[in-house]
Each structure stands twice: as C-alpha cells, then as structure tokens.
Amino acid sequence: MGISLQKGQKISLEKEAGSSLTRIIMGLGWDAAQSGKGGFLGGLFGGGGNDSIDLDASCLLFDDLGNLVDTVWFRQLTSRDGSIHHTGDNRTGEGEGDDEQIKVDLTAVPANVKSLVFTVNNYTGQDFSQVANAYCRILNGVNNTEIARYDLSCQGNHSAMIMAKVYRHNGEWKMHAIGEVGQGRTFEELLPQIKPHL
C-alpha cells in the first residue's frame, strides 16, 4: 500500500519501492460527479445530468536549466526518445482502475532530462469538487505496487493540479509531492506556476 502524499512532501522513490526503481507509472482515475440533485451546479453547467468529465494526465520533461524539452500528453502520446508513453486519452472516466496512465522507463530517460513534472488538467473545465473519486498515483512499473497517491476530489474549485516532480538527485530518482492547484484546460496554462518548482 502506498503512502498518501501530503503537499510539499519529498520521498525517495527507491526507498519506498524497496529496490532500485527502473520503471514508474503515473495513474489517473476519476468518475463523473453526480449532479442529479438539481440545484445550483446543474444549472451552472447547462441542465445538470452526468456531464462528461475529461481529466488529462501530462508528463513534462525539463533539463537542469528549467527548459521544457519534451511533453507527453494526449496530443503526443510518446516522448521523442521513447522512454515515456501515455496509454491514451480517456474522455469520460468510465471503467474501473486508472483511466489514464503514463508509463516511464527511468533507465531510458535522456541524461539531459533532470526532472519530470506530472500534471492533471480538466479539459472540460469543471472544478475538482465536481469530479468524484479523482486521484493520481505513482506505481512501481515493475510489479504495479502503489508507491504514493494523491486524492484530487477534495481539492475544491480548481481545474488543474501540479501533482509531483520526479527528479534525479545524487544518482537516484526522488519525488517531490507538489500538490499545487491551479486553473487551466491544458498543461501550458500551468507552466508559469511550475517554473518555481524546478
């Protein structure tokens, strides 16, 4: 069982995994929030009902100067070097388990990449309070054990989150749980907010 991440927490992924970590998976899952109670929220978003919710996971690759060198998201499912792969865009949150996954082969991430920043954006624009059971998590990609998890549904009236940074430090991969909420339908709108964390 993984640890529940707290904002600002730093963990050694290798210590949590119990061994040298070679592959990780960022998983994102959610269900559309029930808005069948009538009332204010349903009216705001045009007639209530179970409007589709499309959360998107992205992985941003930065060099040691903080320059964005590549991006893995629904418009580019594999990094140019092939080390990071997105399983595809889920636009409804239907189904069990992770709705989207980004798989990272840490042994193949290019040497000039110092940090990977994982973000979640609500492409359909609703805030997280309307998204039921939303979470993002990091898994050991070798045995699929959960290393760490973040609950998104209690994040309130925000439509995006900078989840975590996975970065090289003294030859091992570590993770900084950022947990900073923001606004934006795609990762580009979060870039000014990400820069101070690099």
Rank of each mutant, 00 (worst) to 15 (best):
E14K: 03
D98V: 04
N140L: 00
A177M: 08
D127Q: 11
S83W: 09
L65M: 13
R80C: 07
F128K: 00
L13A: 06
L44N: 04
G46F: 14
L13G: 02
I24D: 00
C59P: 04
E16R: 00
V69Q: 14
R23Q: 14
Q193E: 13
L116R: 03
V142D: 11
L5K: 01
R91H: 09
A148C: 15
G43M: 13
L21P: 01
Y135C: 11
G36M: 09
S83H: 08
V142C: 00
G141P: 10
E96K: 15
R149L: 11
Q183V: 00
D105N: 15
Y150M: 07
F128T: 00
Y123D: 12
E146M: 13
D151T: 12
G2Y: 12
Q76K: 15
R80K: 13
A32P: 14
E96V: 12
G93V: 12
N112A: 03
I147A: 02
Q6W: 13
L191P: 06
I138K: 03
K10G: 04
I53M: 11
P110Q: 08
G184V: 08
E14I: 00
F128D: 06
G182R: 09
F74A: 11
N121Y: 03
F128E: 01
D99P: 06
D99L: 07
L44P: 00
V131A: 06
M161C: 09
L116M: 09
N122V: 14
E189I: 02
S153Y: 06
T22D: 13
V109C: 05
H176V: 06
G179D: 08
E94I: 13
A57H: 03
C59I: 14
S12T: 07
N133H: 10
D151S: 09
R168V: 10
K195G: 07
Q9V: 07
G49C: 01
G18H: 11
H85P: 01
R137Q: 07
G49Q: 10
R91N: 08
I138Q: 01
L60G: 00
L44A: 11
K165Y: 06
I11Y: 09
V166E: 02
S83N: 11
Q183G: 02
G93H: 10
L152W: 01
T87W: 08
Q126N: 12
S159I: 13
M1F: 15
G141H: 06
S12K: 10
V120D: 00
S35N: 08
F74M: 13
S19D: 10
G93D: 05
K114G: 03
N50P: 12
T186N: 10
T124D: 03
E94N: 07
G182S: 12
A134C: 13
Q9D: 10
Y167L: 07
H86R: 15
G27Q: 12
V72I: 15
Q6P: 02
G141D: 07
Q9K: 06
K174C: 05
H176A: 02
A164C: 15
S35Y: 05
E189K: 14
V104M: 14
Y135P: 02
A160L: 09
N112K: 05
K7C: 05
C59A: 11
T107V: 14
L41E: 14
